[in-house]
Design a protein around this nucleic acid. Structure first.
Lengths: 197, 197
DNA sequence: CGTCTATTTGAATGTACTCAAAAGCGGTGG
DNA sequence: CCACCGCTTTTGAGTACATTCAAATAGACG
């Protein structure tokens, strides 16, 4: 199962699985190839799965009535992604998940995940840690959105997630930070003006 | 253990404990009374515990250099609260947690929680669910902060958390929504103007 | 090479902020 | 119990910041 080495290493950081548990777990994973610009999830659909990204790059965003995009998150290698609110509540998705590059993901459906928790309770620990870290990250993001300027948030973003930069446009960063692309452009220009002679 | 009936009911919603597990769990909980206006956590301190609120009302907020408060969350009966980012990363707290009314909480320290996970792995499930729901809630809040107006966020807030209203001032709601109290005041005034003749 | 989208620039606009001051309200102590 | 004090809410004027709109330039991709 050479396919699964990345996700198994990810999991091994937090829990240990024997051969049988590993085989059962990997049997639940559905590998999917997502071509660049195609969608893993669209607003209004049921969000019944979480996705582990093996390769490529994905972006989750919301589109409001007036056509404005807001990016909720990016995900590359070794990240998990889903519309968690709709996954939990079973309401129609509010997010679109789109491939920014040809990507390879492993899909885990909600009912399979629940079965996994019953059969291999160790996975409760694994996902408890994942969810706890995700919660901590989002709580920090809320705080930073409330307290920091666009310039400060931009700097934190590019320093925290340098791996994302090759995949994403400045417009998409703007939609993540919650400002217009025009405004972010001037912010970045004024930043560099201070650096270059 | 009449003290613990509320938290045990909270836990029973997700997992079942036998007598021995219940006794062990409750032995880890430190009851604390917090007088109105006193602090459970201050910025800069180590954040080594999570708190379950039995009664009263708490508020977690950040204070920036310029003296501006930003409210991260409120918590009343039957809620868990902590500075999750600093709890996880073991960095100094970025949040202050203050009692808005005389409150009673149960404190669970991080090392005890880790011990609990080892001795009663069922609790992994319980906290996985708590963390997952918290993550979903924060992800939704990020999205709403990016896409909705102050008026829309205000309406969602008061409809979603009516239990909070008796405890909190409009100024505190403003600091939760990320606007100034003056601005929220005019927003609310303009809302009611549409309702009253 | 041509098309489409992203980035940059600027002008005009509007939204939310700061500052200041008055009014309202709750809590505390005399 | 009432008067005072401090904090919140309200109101308004002036300001700053971020937006919209438009148009030009630059880049990416088929």
């Amino acid at each position: 199962m050479i396919h699964f080495s990345l996700i198994l290493k990810n999991i091994a950081q937090h829990i240990s699985l024997d051969k049988e548990e590993t085989d059962y777990f990997t049997s639940l994973l559905q590998p999917r190839k997502i071509a660049k610009k195609s969608f893993l999830l669209k607003e209004g659909q049921a969000c019944q799965s979480i996705y582990y990204v093996q390769s490529g790059a994905l972006r989750a965003f919301h589109l409001d009535r007036r056509g404005k995009e807001s990016t909720i998150t990016f995900a590359i290698n070794d990240w998990w992604i889903t519309d968690m609110y709709c996954f939990v509540t079973e309401q129609p998705a509010m997010q679109n998940i789109v491939a920014m590059a040809d990507s390879s993901v492993l899909q885990l459906q909600k009912y399979e995940l629940e079965e996994l928790f019953i059969k291999v309770p160790k996975f409760e620990r694994f996902f408890r840690i994942i969810m706890q870290n995700s919660y901590a990250r989002e709580q920090l993001r809320v705080l930073q959105n409330l307290t920091l300027t666009a310039e400060e948030r931009y700097n934190i973003f590019i320093n925290k997630y340098p791996q994302f930069i090759p995949h994403i446009s400045q417009k998409q960063i703007a939609s993540y930070l919650g400002v217009t692309p025009e405004f972010l452009c001037t912010v970045v220009k004024n930043m560099t003006r201070g650096i270059v002679s």
